[in-house]
């Protein structure tokens, strides 16, 4: 997704905002499509939250506090399986590890003049899409641009989650059934485009799915909790990939 925002014609044709106010307005505008996308996905997340037993308020706290699609999906899985503290922390670490890398990357986008308080603020805003827009800005990043995008996006994200909990059960079963795959669709949208451009990543995705499938079938591994399965397979397969084909540029 970062790739598409980098080549977004809007970014190339329009002039860069020159002051904070214009950056904020630009952030609201750029955040709107993200808000729409988040709403549909988080609605399904809300339905899942309800199924796991969360109230609307708890799901609001979760979505506003975490702002992470795969991360919240994993969180619900952990709550449902009554996971222990160690499993919660380690699963959250692994599932959200990509934000670590994005945080590393964004740390280079902040001007030395940017106050430290903004490092705390920007940290909250790191999602695949907001990171993509923020890192596509030429030169130093104006933190308020990212805040504006985040405000609009999180409104859609948290609002969708809460509505999913509240009216998810009013929807006919067929619609709920249909929405239950939207998160997976979103995951596919994150992993498949890079797989198309890089056959090694394509192979990596295929191997990951195959091993995950085997783990679900084999009697010895099917008892492993889904959380630990994600940690185990990620560390093993991503570790192997890093040995087989190290990345040149970060």
């Amino acid at each position: 997704m970062e790739k598409t925002t980098l080549t977004d014609p809007r970014n190339a044709s329009s002039t860069l905002p020159s002051n904070r106010r214009d950056w904020i307005l630009r952030g609201f505008r750029d955040g709107f499509p993200i808000c729409m996308g988040y709403f549909a996905v988080s609605f399904a997340l809300g339905i899942e939250a309800k199924r796991v037993g969360l109230t609307a308020f708890q799901s609001f706290l979760m979505s506003t506090g975490m702002v992470a699609s795969a991360g919240e999906f994993a969180a619900l899985m952990l709550i449902a399986s009554r996971a222990g503290v160690f499993e919660m922390i380690s699963t959250c670490l692994v599932v959200n590890l990509r934000y670590f890398l994005m945080s590393c990357s964004l740390s280079q986008k902040l001007s030395p003049a940017t106050k430290t308080i903004h490092r705390f603020g920007i940290a909250y805003c790191i999602t695949d899409e907001i990171f993509g827009l923020s890192s596509a800005v030429p030169g130093w990043l104006e933190p308020f641009y990212t805040y504006a995008i985040t405000l609009v996006s999180v409104a859609g994200w948290s609002g969708g989650t809460v509505l999913g909990v509240l009216v998810g059960n009013i929807l006919p079963a067929a619609a709920v059934n249909a929405l239950s795959v939207s998160l997976y669709g979103m995951f596919l949208a994150i992993i498949i485009p890079p797989a198309k451009h890089d056959p090694f990543i394509g192979g990596l995705v295929a191997v990951s799915m195959a091993v995950s499938f085997l783990f679900a079938l084999l009697p010895l591994t099917r008892g492993i909790s889904s959380g630990f399965k994600v940690i185990l397979l990620t560390v093993l397969i991503a570790g192997a990939a890093a040995v087989i084909r190290p990345v040149d540029e970060a």
């Binding site: 795969a70 990509r98 740390s107 992993i191 990596l204 990951s208 995950s212 397969i237 991503a238 970060a250």
Partner: peptide, 29 residues
């Protein structure tokens, strides 16, 4: 990372590992 890392990660293995993490995690999920 935002708070403490002001320089790029040096370890090529760790950088590569982090690069591949999202694909494996999301595929498995």
């Amino acid at each position: 990372p935002l708070l403490f890392l002001r320089k790029p990660i040096r370890s090529r293995f760790f950088r590569s590992f982090l690069y591949y993490v999202p694909y494996v995690t999301l595929a498995v999920m």
